[in-house]
Design a protein around this nucleic acid. Sequence first.
DNA 1: CACTCTACCTGTGCGC
DNA 2: TGCGCACAGGTAGAGT
Length: 274
Amino acid sequence: MPELPEVESILRTMRDARPSLLGRKIELVHVAWEGIVSGCSADVFQQQLQGAVVVTAGRHGKYLIFGLEGGERLQGKRFYLVIHLRMTGKLSLVQASAVLERHTRLVVELDKNLALQFDDPRKFGRVWLVDDPKEITIRLGPDALTVGFAEFTTRYAMYRRQLKPLLLDQAFVSGIGNIYADESLYRAGLHPLTNSADLSASYIRRLHAAVVSILREAVDVNGANIDGVFKAGGFRVSVYDREGLPCYSCGNTIVKIRVAQRGTHFCPCCQVKL
DNA sequence: CACTCTACCTGTGCGC
DNA sequence: TGCGCACAGGTAGAGT
């Protein structure tokens, strides 16, 4: 269940660790399951990737964005490989000789005897080739890890809806998933069913601070966790998946409800409905 | 705009 | 032990 911190962790591994994905030339592309490719056919995807060099690596919300140059697509012009891991996707930089796993959907073979391998048991993950990453990110709000208070407030004012689905809405702010939505609301002391229009300015500030601090802390502990076992990484959850267990703060029992078809966990004592 | 529901998928873990 | 089924959740899209 990669959310923003897990994707950031993968990005840092690919970009900053040795060996790095940056500078690698794509030699061969093997699409093991065609449904993974969005926006063009698997054949076109393979042809256009082959020969290109990875020159940049970035992220917006839960989307990984790799800049490419060379190859057969629009000679001389940079283009982009965009990857979304959705629920169960796992991306790793492996030795080219690595044995495919049962749920390997895509292998991008690189020079230096490396390969980028995309495993995904549930086939929810997707990859795109685009001329401009905005084709994907135009629909997304600002990245939740770095969004400032002013922009957060401006965008917040565009909606009046329950806080839980608002936080999950990638058009509002991008990168928050079910786990960190619940954790952010707990830290902010806000009930998930509270309507966004009912928050005072100080509560909006508190919500922003909660979101950003939770994500930063999660990024920090995942950064220490290099071997690709993610889930919630080293982050210690306070409410998520803790139904029936005592709240760390007040000792009352954590409750689970369904909000917008999602499991939603909160402390009925610490989280007030305004 | 807000909301609800469905589809996409398969591994897991429960009740019986 | 095994069967059936609800459940997990990110996103798109359709419908109210």
